[in-house]
């Protein structure tokens, strides 16, 4: 999501600008040094591609949708440094020219959407593409998982920023589980689209995929992930989303320092019983379930489910409105 001005406190926005700017400067320096000049137009086209794909909402559930972030895609195609540059350009242009995302939130948005996504996706991709059989199918599965992981990671970034400097005093635990849960689902779309794009390029021009360098993949290697692999990827994504809600939601607490306490107590399960739990769902317990932890988890699931549904409804209405407003069907 593109954070607007005034959403996160000024000091935290300024604080986030430091690592964002630092990463961008480092990325620019590294990209310029290792630059095959060919990469400049490619990076521009990759950025344009990501920008355009962000207009293409993909379905999540019940007609609501998410859109691509593109960090993993850019990293795998261009390498991590140029990847950070390309996605940062997308974010900066959106803020400066399209008023999409705040000017003072640029640091936050570059951090969440360019630095964190590339920072998570690239190592995951490199690791998996070496562990898996080094064929086109292996690269695609690695891209899919790396792209998936980058999305909830970006949401975690947002949740932490909101926890430190967010407006409105919404319980950080609730923000965390709802945001990360929703994004674990959205990440499935990111993974599939990223893998499809990488697969399409690999099939014609494997030499253009920076991430596949050294894997010796040729254009006649047309192996693709099996249906079983795709199915388990989607199932795993959904499972993680549900698990996040079940395990994290119980710590949701109207007390704004709820997440802080979770962070202090490393043992998740132990703290569940003695944690002072209170909130809209009557102590986060559900009548008729004796085991307090299961009761809390079920209540958390229901509570987050409601928040989730309300949020998606809101997003759905807004998106429909914005699509009508800005993408004329024909010209």
């Amino acid at each position: 999501m593109h954070i607007p001005d005034g959403f996160i406190s000024a000091p935290v926005s300024a604080g986030a600008a430091l690592p964002a700017l630092g990463s961008l400067v480092a990325a620019l320096a590294r990209a310029s040094r290792t630059l095959k000049e060919r990469l400049v137009p490619f990076a521009g086209l990759t950025a344009a591609f990501i920008f355009v794909l962000q207009m293409l909402n993909f379905p999540v559930a019940a007609g609501t949708s998410g859109h691509l972030i593109g960090g993993a895609l850019a990293a795998i195609l261009l390498g991590p440094w140029m990847g950070i540059v390309a996605v940062s350009v997308v974010v900066i242009v959106q803020a400066l020219l399209f008023a999409d995302g705040g000017i003072t939130a640029l640091g936050l948005n570059v951090l969440n959407m360019a630095v964190i996504t590339v920072g998570v996706a690239w190592p995951v991709f490199r690791l998996l593409s070496r562990l898996l059989p080094q064929r086109s199918a292996g690269v695609l599965i690695a891209s899919m998982v790396a792209a998936w992981a980058s999305v909830p990671a970006s949401a975690i970034g947002f949740a932490i920023e909101y926890w430190i400097g967010g407006q409105g005093g919404v319980d950080p635990g609730l923000v965390f589980s709802a945001m990360v849960g929703v994004h674990a689902l959205i990440g499935i779309g990111e993974g599939l689209i990223t893998a499809a794009a990488i697969g399409a390029v690999l099939a014609v021009r494997p030499d253009l995929v920076a991430g596949a360098e050294g894997l010796g993949i040729s254009a006649d290697d047309t192996t693709t992930p099996s249906r079983v692999a795709l199915g388990s990827f989607v199932a795993a994504g959904v499972a993680v989303a549900v698990a996040l809600v079940v395990f994290v939601a119980p710590f949701a607490n109207p007390n704004p320092d709820g997440l802080e306490r979770v962070a202090e107590n490393t043992g998740f399960l132990d703290t569940a019983q003695d944690h002072p739990i209170g909130g809209p769902l009557a102590d986060y317990g559900v009548a008729g379930i004796d085991n307090p932890w299961i009761g809390t988890a079920v209540a958390g699931l229901i509570g987050t489910g409601i928040t989730f549904a309300a949020g998606m409804l809101l997003v759905g209405i807004v998106r429909r409105f914005r699509q009508r407003e800005q993408v004329p069907a024909s010209r």
């Binding site: 620019l28 990209a31 310029s32 630059l35 400049v40 137009p41 990076a43 521009g44 086209l45 950025a47 344009a48 591609f49 920008f51 355009v52 794909l53 207009m55 293409l56 540059v85 390309a86 940062s88 350009v89 997308v90 900066i92 242009v93 020219l97 010209r331």
Partner: peptide
């Protein structure tokens, strides 16, 4: 490097969008 990439991006947004 940043403005060059941005320039290419802006130049091709409409081309890609109409293809999409």
């Amino acid at each position: 490097l940043l403005t060059s990439v941005a320039g290419f991006m802006i130049r091709y947004i409409e081309v890609l969008a109409s293809e999409l």
